[in-house]
Design a binder for these strands. Sequence first.
DNA 1: GGGTAAACGGAACCTTACTCCGATAGTGGC
DNA 2: GCCACTATCGGAGTAAGGTTCCGTTTACCC
Lengths: 196, 196
Amino acid sequence: MNDSDHGPGHPARAKRADARRNEKSLLDAAAAVFVSSGVDAPVRDIAARAGVGVGTIYRHFPTRADLIIAVYRHQVEACAEAGPALLETSATPYEALRRWIDLFVDFLVTKHGLAAVLQSDDAGFDALHSYFLDRLVPVCTRLLGAAADSGEIRSDLEAYGLMRGVGNLCIGADHDPRYDARRLAGLLVEGLRRPR
Amino acid sequence: MNDSDHGPGHPARAKRADARRNEKSLLDAAAAVFVSSGVDAPVRDIAARAGVGVGTIYRHFPTRADLIIAVYRHQVEACAEAGPALLETSATPYEALRRWIDLFVDFLVTKHGLAAVLQSDDAGFDALHSYFLDRLVPVCTRLLGAAADSGEIRSDLEAYGLMRGVGNLCIGADHDPRYDARRLAGLLVEGLRRPR
DNA sequence: GGGTAAACGGAACCTTACTCCGATAGTGGC
DNA sequence: GCCACTATCGGAGTAAGGTTCCGTTTACCC
């Protein structure tokens, strides 16, 4: 996991110092540019901001998806870990599900264009798509399962479908005050409640 | 509205015959290409299929949005007109709303990439966005209003938000058998029901 | 048939993604 | 401390798509 350690000279060749420095610069620059120009800002802009050539970006992050994943990894992890926690601290499993979806929505809508690129069928974003799904679907499955077991919701919707749906609802949620993604996601979850 | 009339020689100059022919060719070609390659197929492809130069496309349809609107105008109109009709033929206003949303979803998911481009924040698709909204939001408003008046659903969601939400849910619905947009849209509408 | 302006076509240009390779400069061995 | 070795760098080059521009063609009116 942690490759920044530089223990006593071991056979495994350590990454060169400039490479590590550049990777850090790139992550910082990308994060800044993503905030100001969205996640599909031109690669050149990110390279310029980091003070490196475009070749350096592609060497460290073969696809744009890899860069996006690296930038948001921490937050995705946090979201994933929040699932089980909410299950413990909420009054009911349904309540936990509702709150977890809120977290996910908040994360997505605050990242200009991330939701859009997440659902893009553009090959090359497969890695991004997969990362989110691999990390979050299991968490969602558990929340859905708990809420279904407690009889609060129907049990005929897969976590995958729900995640994609919620992700879609977040598209374009920034830059349109009339569109409230959080609200709609809430209604969608509300729709899961058992009829009656 | 109808500019294909060529009434008795009036001062208004009639459009040249080749221009009218090309416009027709372009609409046919675009429709065909949209089906096989999606609505964001390269402009050059459409021009080639129609047997005209790219300049001719831009002369007839200044933006891609104009072309898309022209191609799907009939179906959008049909959808808009189906609203009031459903209100008359359905058992309850809620039922009419549910069925109308189904129609809208079916329309969107069968047009590769249309939903995505509809929500794109890319300026230049404003016209497309506006056309759909101008034409369909009033219809949706009426359906929502009727269902709210009959007490079947809550009344605190604007038609605009619902339309955007449903449109978003349709993104990427083709080419992913595990994702059922119609189902999710149904759940969203279900979520509108008054609690108890 | 001839004059005129509408309409055509596609070369040219711009922007962005992504690749490739000569130049640069850390690193480990001495 | 110096050198050779090679990982890494930087950005010119290539490709693809969108949009514009203007010399050429052609329908229309008389």
